[in-house]
């Protein structure tokens, strides 16, 4: 672990009861969702992690508690450090607090979480779908959502599949 990261991680451990793992040099801090806002404020103001690179989620379906891990990647430009936070969320009615008041660019990423994983974001100013159409059903990146594979047409099954296809006409 980077020398500069050690005191930060120690502090997160002490104040928020975080669990720290390191894998291939990437430091990941596991944290309860109630402590997310306080921890990110601390990271931003005290340790100068000014850049929130990304927010994403991992779906561990069929596991239920926790079903999701929300992953936050923070960067400090002044100290050249990177830190990942992980927040476990249960499968039933998954909700996380919003980071939009701390990092402005959390806005779209959290909308994407809602769109792709169906994770509700408490206090988000504009929680609409981001990438999929407004009338879409389901949340595509969940593991229980099918890929939506269509059987390709070949010579032997051409007519059979052709019947099920809509065809654009003038």
């Amino acid at each position: 672990m980077d020398k500069q990261l050690q005191p930060i991680v120690k502090k997160l451990k002490k104040e928020f009861g975080a669990e720290v793992t390191e894998f291939r040099g990437d430091v990941q801090v596991l944290l309860a969702s109630e402590k997310l806002i306080a921890a990110s404020l601390k990271l931003r103001d005290e340790f100068d992690f000014a850049l929130l690179s990304t927010i994403t989620a991992v779906d561990y379906w069929p596991e239920e508690s926790p079903r999701f891990h929300i992953v936050y990647v923070f960067n400090s430009l002044s100290k050249n450090l990177q830190l990942m936070l992980r927040v476990p969320v249960a499968g039933e009615n998954p909700t996380i607090p919003t980071l939009t008041k701390v990092y402005k660019n959390a806005n779209w990423r959290e909308r994407e979480l809602w769109d792709m994983f169906g994770i509700k974001v408490d206090g988000h100013p504009d929680l609409r779908r981001l990438l999929m159409p407004d009338d879409w059903n389901g949340h595509p990146l969940r593991k229980d959502y099918p890929l939506g594979y269509e059987e390709p047409q070949f010579t032997f099954n051409y007519e059979e599949i052709d019947l099920s296809k809509p065809h654009g006409e003038v």
């Binding site: 291939r24 990941q28 690179s53 992953v71």
Partner: peptide, 20 residues
């Protein structure tokens, strides 16, 4: 098993891959 984040500088900025 595990997860990493790797990033390069693309012509547009930080292009990162989170892989689990």
């Amino acid at each position: 098993k595990g997860s990493v984040y790797a990033a390069v500088e693309s012509p547009r900025g930080e292009l990162g891959v989170f892989l689990e």
